[in-house]
Amino acid sequence: MSNDLQFSLDGVSVCFEKGETIMQAAQRAGIYLPHLCFHPDFSAHGSCRVCIVHLQGKTVAACTQPAESNQVVQSNTPELQKARLRLIQLLFAEGNHYCPTCETSGNCQLQALAYDLGMTHYHYDPFMPERQTDGSHPDLFIDRDRCIQCDLCGRASAEYDGKAIYTLSGRGQNTQLVFRSPSGLLGDTNAGADDRAAHICPVGCILPKTGNYQEPIGTRLYDHHPIHDIGNLRKEERGGSS
């Protein structure tokens, strides 16, 4: 009966349930589609565009595009991999990403996708934005230089923690992560270090203040395992996958 609920993804037949997106169906089928702003536990955002796929002549984001019967979807093509590489390079160029000093290096999804897509350099000139850090919280540190505006923290905070602390403000290249407190400081919110939002960041923007740099190089998530093999993991999610 559910036989007609399937589509083709890179030549493989993928089953889906009504209402699922291409990304959700692919994940259930165990097929990795590169992504950053998507997380299965939260509503889709569709902003990073890394999960773009070809769908019958159009390019769409797999995380927001509803799956439909008999769709023909292409993801793993040289053209799309190149496009994803460029998107990742744009993300690197627009922030201030200094991997050698970053606590998340080795466990960072942006970096892992860059490794996986064969990135050796930024390709675009760095934008060198001036962004504020926020160290007001006793347990958490915010380094906006590394923020990729994916709003995962915003969604985790609103949809899971029920706190709605994190959100995005501004416009265009000045879009930035902000916190819902009168002062605008994270320290003046009821954010907790155990909140889901505090652990959802795919890069090194939201960090615990203690316990960093403890894993030796060679033992971190993506030191030996490409992201397409092990998925978009966070440090504490070893073994799981998203």
């Binding site: 200094y98 050698p100 000093t101 930024y122």
Partner: peptide
């Protein structure tokens, strides 16, 4: 890293 994106010295930017 420094030749590629300025690296640590570029943190003065």
């Amino acid at each position: 890293a420094c030749a590629i994106n300025g690296g640590v010295p570029a943190m003065r930017n």
